[in-house]
Nucleic acid binder design. Structure first.
Lengths: 215, 215
DNA sequence: GCAGTTTTGTACTGACTAGTCAAATTGAGA
DNA sequence: TCTCAATTTGACTAGTCAGTACAAAACTGC
């Protein structure tokens, strides 16, 4: 790079002369749509064309702004964890009816969701964890971070349930929260395998019946 | 087809004249090796070259004998279910120490397995269910068949545990078996997400502590 | 109008994929 | 030893993939 070019850069940055065609799309909105597609189809089954169509932008704009498919994926994971930690269904239910009731309604809603005939969903983090077997370290890191944030929220409900005497108070609330999430994710996998909703509801019901400490 | 050709066929079939170069590989062994690779790497991440190298055969032989990658996959799933239903660790443990003890040791072994640093495994059916979201009907069918066979085995342990008074006798043993499998698979997903073994062991331990009916 | 930068659209690259095919190889029966 | 047919072998097809390159159009501030 010649010294003239360097000087040019300095001038441009100091005096902030340039200003050109503004970005036509909303980056956050595009990312939200990317998350939707990844959520629905998974990473592998989402081609770049799928992604671009959903995001409503062109190839050039995509690579200018988001650098790569994988980077977009990682950002989508973070975005999801943010959403769940602030304002998602977990925080909402936990505020409305704290303690054991929040856990049961969340679990029931989750089973409804993953066994939906029309549009089965389930936790995006669970999908990510299922698809990538911890092979990719950056993805692994993003998943763990997301899980821990969600576990923090569930833990608060568990602690409330323990205070109410609905869950054994000698157990670690973090362990219990992890167990609740594992049960949900396990039922999630079973649902995608094709097991009928009624069976899964009964299995889930059994779990809550057994986990609740007798009054 | 000329009548002469037809006559040829008849002669060949009646008199069993033909005999040519015999197959050099063992079909069952090749299938077993294919299952290993699918188990370890998943369907998507196993290229045909991976498959051929593991099976020790060439492209032509493969397509002659196994028809396609997917058909091989389906056969591998069936083969696994067969193995688990007859002589696998489940049947073994259930015979050695029936009832609740069998369930706990199986669960502990499973957690050990899925959190192994060197070679994490976990149920092949779980891997298949995780990878395919019920999109493909033939795979879906194979998974369900496999799950139901395994559930049958677990159900017997649950029934024994109920007779021993270790599990609530008013619950359906099939539902409880499904719950146990769901917990195992949920922990499996958590392990692959990267959660540490000790956390998962404690979560699993909590489950068995809560599920056991007080003496 | 000019300068500077982004968007748009399309064409392209190189790598990878499952699956095909025909010719060479092999071994058992005659 | 010869014949015949299945197996083996490796090159080949047709398609997909993420990512690159680039020209032309569009837009803002001067």
């Amino acid at each position: 790079m010649s010294s003239v070019l360097i000087l040019d850069l300095l001038v441009q940055n100091c005096y902030r002369i340039p200003m050109a065609r503004p970005r036509e799309f909303d980056e956050e909105q595009a990312l939200a749509r990317a998350m939707e597609v990844f959520w629905k189809q998974g990473y592998h089954d989402t081609s770049l064309d799928d992604l671009l169509e959903a995001m409503g932008i062109q190839r050039g704009s995509f690579y200018n702004t988001f650098r790569s498919k994988k980077e977009t994926y990682l950002r989508a994971i973070d975005r999801y964890a943010d959403f769940m930690a602030n304002g998602g269904p977990y925080t909402h239910a936990a505020q409305m009816e704290p303690g054991f009731a929040a856990l049961t309604t969340l679990a029931n809603d989750y089973i409804e969701s993953v066994t939906s005939e029309t549009e089965p969903r389930g936790c995006f983090l669970a999908h990510v964890a299922k698809e990538h077997r911890g092979n990719d370290p950056t993805i692994r890191q993003a998943i763990i971070a997301g899980i821990e944030r969600m576990r923090g929220i569930v833990t608060r409900s568990v602690e409330a349930a323990q205070r109410d005497g609905d869950l054994p108070s000698d157990a670690s609330p973090e362990d219990l929260a992890l167990l609740f999430m594992s049960v949900a994710w396990g039922i999630h996998v079973m649902a995608e395998a094709g097991l009928p909703r009624e069976h899964l509801k009964k299995a889930g019901g059994q779990f809550f019946a057994m986990s609740r400490t007798p009054a």
